[in-house]
């Protein structure tokens, strides 16, 4: 479980995070949603330890990150899998080498054991025949799958995804969303996804945290988000014509 208490972060005069508190439970796909500039990425980077918050605490299974030594922090980080928005695959390595990289860095597996494990996870993300391609030769969807494979290859306890389906067509985006959901259930990991895609919310949003101007405006699930009276949430949810139509149909059906 990841527990966040009263998180604050500023850049100069700009107060980006204003006292966010929440919990992300294991075995759940937790979504952080909100408009661009609402502080989602800064919040995610604080959770990852890439940005040091000014105030507040982040606890990984009861261990307060800011109170840990460098080696203890390193231990926590080795249990984190991260899927970056652009994939962040290493250009100089093949897809197989990218997936084997965390194993090479953090385990004592020999080459054949590493290859077997990488094969296994590449099959799991439906990429059984792309081992020797370079990331630049792979499509956007393939790159995202490789990034997921790399994130889960070392059996992480926590999986973070920064807009995992941005830049993908709707069908591939759903495949990626479902893959993340399946992996979360299969490995019982704490998954935190940063998104502004309402399709993702509908597909996999078991717990949703809505941010607005650096404040946690609302939290709930995909079942409750459509029933909330919170104006900021409804403005966000029904900003697209598609969802306006869905709401209209829902109301008509109810009446």
């Amino acid at each position: 479980m990841i527990e966040v208490n009263n998180l604050h972060k500023s850049f100069g005069d700009l107060h980006v995070l204003k006292g966010i508190s929440t919990k992300f439970l294991p075995g759940y796909t937790n979504l952080i949603i909100g408009q661009s500039g609402s502080g989602k990425t800064v919040f995610l980077k604080c959770l990852l330890g890439l940005i040091e918050p000014e105030e507040g605490t982040i606890c990984f299974d009861g261990q307060t990150y800011s109170e840990l030594t460098i080696n203890e922090r390193r231990d926590i980080r080795s249990k984190i899998g991260m899927v970056f928005q652009g994939g962040a695959l290493f250009d100089s390595m093949s897809i197989l080498e990218n997936v084997m990289f965390p194993l090479r860095m953090f385990t004592k597996m020999n080459l054949s054991e590493r290859q077997d494990r990488a094969d296994e996870v590449l099959k799991r993300v439906n990429l059984p025949n792309a081992h020797h391609k370079k990331p630049s030769e792979a499509s956007g969807g393939m790159q995202k799958r490789v990034a997921i494979a790399r994130a889960i290859v070392n059996n992480p306890k926590y999986l973070f995804c920064d807009e995992p389906n941005s830049g993908l067509d709707p069908k591939t985006a759903i495949v990626i969303d479902n893959l993340i959901k399946e992996i979360t259930d299969e490995y019982n990991i704490t998954t935190v996804i940063n998104s502004h895609d309402m399709n993702s919310v509908m597909e996999i949003g078991e717990k949703i945290v809505f941010l607005k101007d650096g404040v946690k405006e609302w939290e709930g699930s995909k079942e409750t988000i459509f029933k909330t009276d919170n104006e900021a949430v409804t403005n966000f949810v029904y900003s697209s014509e598609l969802f306006k139509k869905v709401k209209q149909m829902y109301l008509e059906e109810r009446n």
């Binding site: 980080r77 984190i80 652009g86 962040a88 953090f106 973070f160």
Partner: peptide, 15 residues
């Protein structure tokens, strides 16, 4: 380029 494409962030997240 590694910085721009978040590859350095990926290394740091891994510890």
């Amino acid at each position: 380029t590694m910085r721009v494409t978040e590859q350095i962030d990926a290394l740091e997240v891994m510890g």
